[in-house]
Design a protein around this nucleic acid. Structure first.
Length: 494
RNA sequence: GGGCCCGUAGCUCAACUGGCAGAGCAGCUGGCUUUUAACCAGAAGGUUGGGGGUUCGAGUCCCUCCGGGCCCA
């Protein structure tokens, strides 16, 4: 028997011992009059050594234990904090006291009843007169002092990570606050929260490979959405002027410190707005989150970042001129640009088109250096099939991506609402697909039909929620901000 | 997909140049009625991620597979 199994056997033995003595280790009900936090608030001014007449029931997990013989001190933790239990043979009687010491382990859930006191050393405690075993744990918790450090275990058994690593718990509380603040920000501005299909007959809204599934009854292939964009636009056509959705997108691609196959996205659309309005919306929203968290200036990895609006606006042309010395407007063809890239000895892979080459150069030489909040704007038209062309430069579109700390945090356009132009763009994408581009946008006749009924001029904005949480929690990997990140299955010896 | 690093007791970590696998916490036994990582004493706990190889001898060197981390694509 392994050491692990022996520890489990030991606890099973205790569980049986409890049952033999008529104690159900998994009772259906439990009494609780106060949380730990409520007690700490209510008795904040109780002086050391003082006792109250107040009797309370507390409940929680046993996280620590100091046994001094016929008296002992136990740490009970609930969702709000920690409270000490003071147990003695005097108060419980020999039998009940011995049973507790013998059969209750660290990690078990315990309810305790007694008087609220403060010990001579100043620790608020419950002097226990009665107790209930609430749930027996069969496996030991990770070590109390060092916590759980093993990265793999922290991801695979997140409950243990949350249980013993305070910073991890804080990260996910912060994540929740960020999403809540986003909702409040948009709700206050008249945006309507909606839900659109995750199972889609045609995927679209961005360039990515999808997960494929099948509906048995309909005998139909369906795709998990890579973006909600095309459905949200249908709502603009339907007359809603401001909508947003926060939800999971699914992209069948590699896993990295910045990519999880399912990830959370905010998309919002505002009628009668353009990408300039969406820039303001984005910086205001992220600043509002920063204010909520008290992080208007924050540290991300080795950087100090100031989120105060307005943020820097930088066109791709300016950015590439600055970081590579290439003027893409003076190199308007694929051949000319590639020739210049090679002449300069720039280190990028060859790309099939001018637009993709520009994108590649930006990814390689510009994005990692965008530490302070920056909107990169005016992208090549051919890599942006859902964005409206710039009136002054039809080979470019009104599109931007926000960058902070080198992280790409989103994507936004003045949305293309010309149904004939949209059809042309889809056809160009089909052509790219024929040339082997698996990520080319599929042609969506149902969406084109909707667009032909008329969509108002609209600004759209997508924000990657996970990456935003990374920024605000100083996380190096997206896995640190996703409760249950995607991992390869661990092979169990059979 | 490529390169580098890591995987030792339930948890956190040791183990020199290849030479008896070791400690703390947890658990077990005993002691202790005001502790705060309580303390004191004792005994126990290992397929060193899996498989193969080199060697008198492998946690350590080599090959391979699995998982994780970092960097690159």
């Amino acid at each position: 028997m392994s050491a692990e199994e022996r520890l489990r056997e030991e606890r099973l033995r205790k569980l049986e011992d409890l049952r033999r003595r008529g104690i159900e280790p998994y009772p259906a009900r439990c009494e609780r009059t106060h949380t730990a936090q409520q007690l700490h608030e209510r008795f904040a001014n109780l002086p050391p050594g003082e006792e109250t007449d107040e009797h309370v029931w507390v409940a929680g997990r046993v996280m620590g234990r100091r046994v001094l013989g016929k008296a002992s001190f136990w740490d009970l933790r609930d969702g709000t904090g920690r409270i000490q239990l003071l147990l003695s043979q005097d108060a419980l009687g020999e039998e009940r006291y011995e049973l507790l010491l013998r059969d209750v382990d660290l990690g078990d859930f315990l309810g305790a009843y007694g008087r609220v006191v403060r010990t001579r050393r100043g620790e608020l405690s419950v002097r226990v007169e009665d107790y209930r075993v609430l749930a027996k744990a069969l496996r030991p918790l990770p070590e109390k002092w060092h916590g759980l450090k093993d990265q793999e275990a922290r991801y695979r058994q997140r409950y243990l990570d949350l249980l013993v690593n305070e910073p991890s718990r804080k990260t996910f509380e912060t994540r929740s606050r960020i999403v809540r603040t986003m909702r409040r920000f948009l709700d206050e501005r008249g945006f309507l929260e909606v839900e659109t299909p995750i199972l889609q007959p045609i995927y679209g809204g961005t360039a990515a490979r999808p997960f494929t599934t099948y509906h048995n009854e309909l005998e139909q292939t369906l795709y998990l959405r890579i973006a909600p964009e095309l459905y949200l636009k249908r709502l603009l056509i339907g007359g809603f002027e401001r909508v947003y959705e926060i939800g999971k997108n699914f992209r069948n691609e590699g896993i990295s410190t910045r990519h999880n196959p399912e990830f959370t996205m905010l998309e919002c659309y505002q009628a009668y707005a353009d990408y300039n309005d969406m820039m303001e919306l984005a910086e205001q929203m992220i600043y509002a989150i920063a204010q909520e968290l008290g992080l208007e200036r924050l540290s991300y990895q080795e950087h100090t970042i100031d989120l105060t609006p307005p943020w820097r606006r930088l066109t791709l042309r300016e950015a590439l001129l600055e970081h590579t010395g290439l003027d893409i407007e003076a190199l308007p063809t694929h051949e000319a640009l590639w020739e210049a890239v090679q002449r300069k000895g720039l280190f990028v892979d060859e790309q099939p088109t001018w637009g993709k080459l520009v994108d590649e150069l930006v990814s390689e030489y510009v994005e990692p250096r965008l530490i302070q909040p920056t909107f990169l704007l005016d992208y090549p038209r051919e890599i942006s099939p859902l964005a409206k062309a710039k009136p002054t430069a039809p080979h470019l579109v009104e599109r931007f991506e926000p960058f902070i700390g080198g992280l790409e945090l989103g994507n936004a356009f003045s949305e293309l609402n010309d149904p004939l132009d949209q059809r042309e763009r889809f056809k160009q994408q089909e052509e790219q697909r024929r040339r082997g581009d698996e990520e080319a946008h599929p042609l969506d006749e149902d969406f084109l039909l909707a667009l032909e009924y008329g969509m108002p001029p609209t600004g759209g904005l997508g924000i990657g929620v996970d990456r935003l949480v990374m920024l605000f929690t100083d996380a190096r990997s997206i896995r640190d901000v996703i409760l249950f990140p995607a991992l390869r299955p661990k092979q169990e010896p059979s």
